[in-house]
Amino acid sequence: MHVVFLGLSITSSWGNGHATTYRGLVRELERLGHDVLFLERDVPWYAAHRDTRGALPGRTELYSSLEDLRARFTSEVQRADLVVVGSYVPQGVEVGGWVQRTARGVTAFYDIDTPVTLAKLGRGDFEYLSPALVPGYRLYLSFTGGPTLQRIERELGSPAARPLYCSCDPELYAPRDGDVRWDLGYLGTYSDDRQPVLERLMLDAAEAWPEGRFVVAGPRYPEGVSWPPNVERMQHLAPPEHAAFYTAQRFTLNVTRADMVRAGYSPSVRLFEAAACGVPIISDDWEGLGTFFTPGRELFVSHGAEQTLRYLRELSEAERQEVGRRARERVLGGHTAAHRARTLEGYAREVASGRAP
């Protein structure tokens, strides 16, 4: 197939989880023999934080405006077998309308932010998707599974809403030798809804255990956040640095955005990445978590600082390592970029043949 993606970013992971998802997916589609073009709006904040080392997979082109996109890439979209528009694409409603009018192959919307998208639509915020566009995409690919998929079909009129969860790139995320520096770490961009959970599960634990070593890495944290003295702060880490960061922790923390907790069945990419590194995960709880990892066997669930500290201080080293090993096996068996590429390939071929995927 000739595949065209119009996504938020593949060149920079600064402040977003889209880039690593697209890099792995594009690379694996290429390995399956497909020709892939990725189109990205050139914006200053990503231009200042390009974080790729070496060539990107596929072909990547930057465009400066909607007019530039139409002028230079209409023929690419017309001849594509599959055109995928991602969530949070600048002027996404206009881009989506143009794609639906122009493409002759299968069109798809790839929602890397499904619960956020549905909440925005519910309050009339059509930043990158409008209800009128949904029926025109022959596929609605969602980071969220479960009952949300039926809602997208029933309420928004999607012909086929299907899960295409996030994944990990096992070439980047794998166990590494090195010194363990922290008892518990967290990697994530600041958000208002995640911060109270971070405080409850990690910062309160750090306050209660001054001898413990903690770290939080990620951009956009406001100056007013109160960090306990035993919590180290790091700014943005590029994806090539993630594996070393994870493997320098005894445990890593997963915190889920409030909209995704309400929807359920919305695994964070950090879950799969950390698990692929063999690092035991302590996660907040949400419906559907057990679909991806078995609590108590492949990760740990915490509801507060006291429970977090029990894991950190009472689990044996052998049990800690065994949970990390099981989680890595689970990811490599079903949650890599190669798995997602084959899933997308199957969906597109079934839709093109007139069947529901």
Rank of each mutant, 00 (worst) to 15 (best):
L237G: 07
S283P: 09
R123Q: 12
L201F: 08
Y22F: 14
P222C: 09
H236C: 06
S268E: 12
G157A: 04
E199C: 08
R325Y: 06
P210N: 11
G33M: 04
M234T: 05
G334Y: 08
Q249M: 14
A263Y: 05
T102D: 02
Y190K: 03
G145T: 00
G188Y: 02
R340V: 03
D81V: 04
E298G: 11
A132D: 14
Y221A: 08
F272N: 04
L29R: 04
L315A: 12
R194L: 07
C277M: 10
Q91H: 15
L141C: 04
G334V: 13
Y221T: 06
E287P: 10
H34G: 02
V216Y: 00
L315S: 12
G54D: 07
T114H: 06
L69N: 11
F73A: 02
L139I: 08
G212F: 09
V279W: 10
W45Y: 13
R310E: 15
T102W: 05
V215H: 06
V197M: 15
G7R: 03
Y110M: 14
G146F: 08
P210D: 05
G105M: 11
G178C: 07
S226P: 00
M1I: 11
W227R: 04
R53C: 01
T294S: 13
G212R: 07
T256L: 07
D285C: 12
V331Q: 06
G324I: 02
F214N: 07
Q307M: 08
N16T: 14
G178Q: 12
V331G: 03
N16S: 13
V26M: 00
A55W: 01
E287C: 02
A108C: 05
G185Y: 01
R330G: 09
P222A: 06
A161L: 08
E67R: 13
E223G: 13
V77N: 00
E319Q: 13
L344I: 02
D285P: 04
T107A: 10
A174Y: 15
D68N: 09
A19P: 01
D192E: 15
W45I: 11
A48E: 15
Y110L: 15
E329L: 14
P163D: 12
G185H: 03
T308W: 10
H2W: 06
G185D: 11
S268K: 15
A160Y: 03
D125K: 11
A108E: 01
